[in-house]
């Protein structure tokens, strides 16, 4: 499979606590991270809150400027692109956030929200765009009447579908899902995961799936990267990492996953006291 995205020595440092007379200190949110994603693959990115996984996701899209390092998208270094080139590239790379209500404009109809990407990128005539919006809604399993409704009229799962519809509107190659199912109930979560799997197959999407939930990541990914304190601590195929974790931090994360049956309770307790 061909490489779609390659990240080399990416760093994202923030300076915090800086004042007029204070020097401040550096927070290394992402510290020298390198990895690559092949076309059509799903890469899971796991770690605890504050490990830098979301920052990494945003830095890849250059929603925040990287401190150092290279981001190669289809062989082209996007960290060197200017604003205009970047806008063109964003068609190819999209993101779905955790909280769809916060990331959808509440004053716009859903139809407008979904049409906006086409307008920004100057695609199609108004009539064509209306047609595309309809197709998008159908694709993510929402009723066609949704175009004249506001985001707050939808449930959490439906809002996430709107967020996904907007992200796939321009037929991107890369989709970054930042905790996209974390706020949802299990049954809704299962539906959204199924939708993502379907879309991936249909559109040959490459996905980076960021989550703190290891069971969800296992479900959807081909490969996993485990992050801790801004660094990659382990990387490998889902099967291998989950069956045979090498790093202590990965082992700890896996051990903390809630059990699936009460009979496993004792076993874990013993392991913990040791």
């Amino acid at each position: 499979m061909q490489e779609l995205l390659k990240v080399e020595g990416l760093k994202q440092h923030f300076i915090s606590g800086k004042g007029i007379f204070r020097k401040g200190y550096t927070i290394k949110a992402v510290d020298d991270v390198s990895f690559s994603v092949a076309e059509g693959e799903t890469l899971g990115l796991v770690g605890e809150s504050g490990c830098g996984k979301s920052t990494l996701g945003r830095t890849i899209l250059r929603l925040i400027e990287p401190t150092a390092g290279k981001i190669l998208f289809e062989g082209e270094d996007i960290s060197a692109c200017n604003a205009l080139q970047m806008r063109q590239l964003r068609r190819e790379m999209q993101i779905v956030f955790q909280d769809p209500l916060e990331s959808l404009n509440q004053r716009h109809f859903v139809g407008m929200i979904l049409e906006e990407p086409f307008i920004i990128h100057k695609q199609g005539t108004p009539a064509q765009r209306k047609e595309w919006v309809k197709e998008l809604l159908e694709k993510v399993g929402l009723p066609a009447e949704s175009v004249t409704r506001y985001p707050h009229e939808f449930s959490g799962g439906q809002r996430q579908r709107i967020g996904i519809a907007r992200a796939i509107a321009l037929k991107p190659k890369l989709l970054i899902c930042d905790e996209s199912v974390s706020a949802l109930d299990v049954s809704i979560q299962a539906q959204i995961l199924n939708l993502l799997l379907d879309l991936q197959q249909e559109m040959n999407l490459t996905m980076i799936f960021i989550s703190h939930d290891l069971s969800v990541v296992k479900h959807i990914s081909d490969r996993v990267i485990v992050m801790n304190a801004g660094k990659i601590v382990e990387e490998g195929l889902v099967k291998e990492i989950y069956a045979n974790p090498q790093n202590d931090y990965t082992k700890r994360l896996l051990d903390a996953i809630p059990i699936t049956h009460p009979s496993q309770r004792k076993k874990r307790l013993l392991a913990n006291t040791r």
Binding site: T42, L197, D213, S215, H219, D222
Partner: peptide
């Protein structure tokens, strides 16, 4: 619907 860790991925 509980995510099962024994399931095959994807």
């Amino acid at each position: 619907l509980m995510p099962n860790m024994d399931d095959e991925p994807k």
